[in-house]
Write a protein that binds this DNA or RNA. Sequence first.
RNA 1: GGCGGCGUAGCCAAGUGGUAAGGCAGCGGUCUGCAAAACCGCAAUGCCCCGGUUCGAAUCCGGGCGCCGCCUCCA
Length: 477
Amino acid sequence: MSKKVTLYNTLTQKKEELVPYSENKIKMYVCGPTVYSSAHLGHARAAVTFDVIERFLTYLGYEVTYVRNFTDIDDKIIAKSNETGIPANEISEKYIQEYQEDMASIGVKPPTTQPKVTEHVPEIIEMIQRIIDNGHAYQSEGDVFFSVKKFNGYGKLSKRDPDDMMAGTRIDINEKKEDPLDFALWKAAKPGEPFWESPWGNGRPGWHIECSLMSTKYLGDSFDIHGGGKDLIFPHHENEIAQSEAATGKPFAKYWVHNGLIQINREKMSKSIGNILNVNEAVSMWSKEAIRLFFLSHQYLNPADFSDTTMNEAEAALERLYMTLKRANDLAETKNEADKELESSIEAFKESWVSAMCDDFNTAEALGNLFELTRAINRSIDSNGWTPTLKTALKEVDQFAQTLGILEYDPNEYLQSHKLEKASTEITEEEIEQLIEERISARKDKNWARADEIRDELDAKGIVLEDKADNTIWRVK
RNA sequence: GGCGGCGUAGCCAAGUGGUAAGGCAGCGGUCUGCAAAACCGCAAUGCCCCGGUUCGAAUCCGGGCGCCGCCUCCA
């Protein structure tokens, strides 16, 4: 790779250069959802963050293997099954389907592999057995627990000292555990619960072990990047490290990447506050690209506050980009000469967006570069109209936009049809065109009063007109 | 109590030692029948406060104040 990528590693608490185990190849594992409810904006942010990381590393020429799992058997799924009477596997299937659709609706590309826990139980059992054999876990009645004290280095990710964790914390007292910090690798099934047979009796995998198995199975004992939301650092990722390293004896993931959490109107998004915003609700209110742009205009490590205001700003910013694309697309090709000034803006842009992305995937900074190029493009159109350089600029914009997964619509389609669908206005495209025709003849007759009246009428319905030299175009406000 | 993070213009948000990107909103100008869009210009003499290090700090160190996350299920 000609470009060096640096990324913040939670494990070392430093920004480090990305040096993969195998040159030109990146193995990345990201924790997917536990499928017991609809995907919310938090899932969306994580998915978009790693989607863009995957796209960018691929752009740089890496061959990326990206695994994101589904945890489809778990206490919460069972609880939901008990509440509703619907079998656990039907619940998880339903939400897996929904998750796939929701992620597709915000332009998240499917990972290379999306393994499910329930399809890996025999291998999980083998892994647990290995951990027991290595002396890091023990059986207690029908359960198997990981022995935290026996794992040297427990706490290295979340910077916790097991000795400090004992005192005062609200750790569940469980008679079956040798130590309150120990956590379950295998849980005995209660009557009526789904189960798999194991050497320790009927039961199911505990939370955490599934990720240890699936990551190492698909990516190897030691792999490059492990990601997820910041809330997973403890206990989930801490436990994953302990189990995996206890099983394999090798270092687990090299770089730990954690995205910041979403807030809604400056509050934590949580069930108790009742402010969880699901992806499908958000998509019905804002365009999918505005949602992506909202995420990407924050550095992924930082929290992001979702609100009407911040989303409307994202919509406005997106619109500015589409307006420029539309201006450019509407020009007919001519034999004009290259635009030197624009040429240098393109060079500057290319250099700066890639550097920004190489610096811990700083999409916010890279977007700033895009807006600078946008201004340069507009300037060029103002003074030179169509030039071959303009074509080059659009190609470069597209390259970057593809990396972020935005600007995939045709500009006209976005500014008209797409927004018309979202708007509450009842006017149709035909009616708009008709009024524009009428206004054009009024303007020919210099009947300004009627022309302005039509414009006001449309404006009241959320349609904005722009008079060009030889025609009038419209868009939704 | 322990660990981690944050505080940059009216709002959002980059910037981790070299003299404050970008977006939204606002103001002035060019263009326009008038608009809109676009462009040009203006807008933080300063980056929560107080000290310190340095030729130089939003950036490093110390001390405050305020906000938040995790420590229990969570992307």
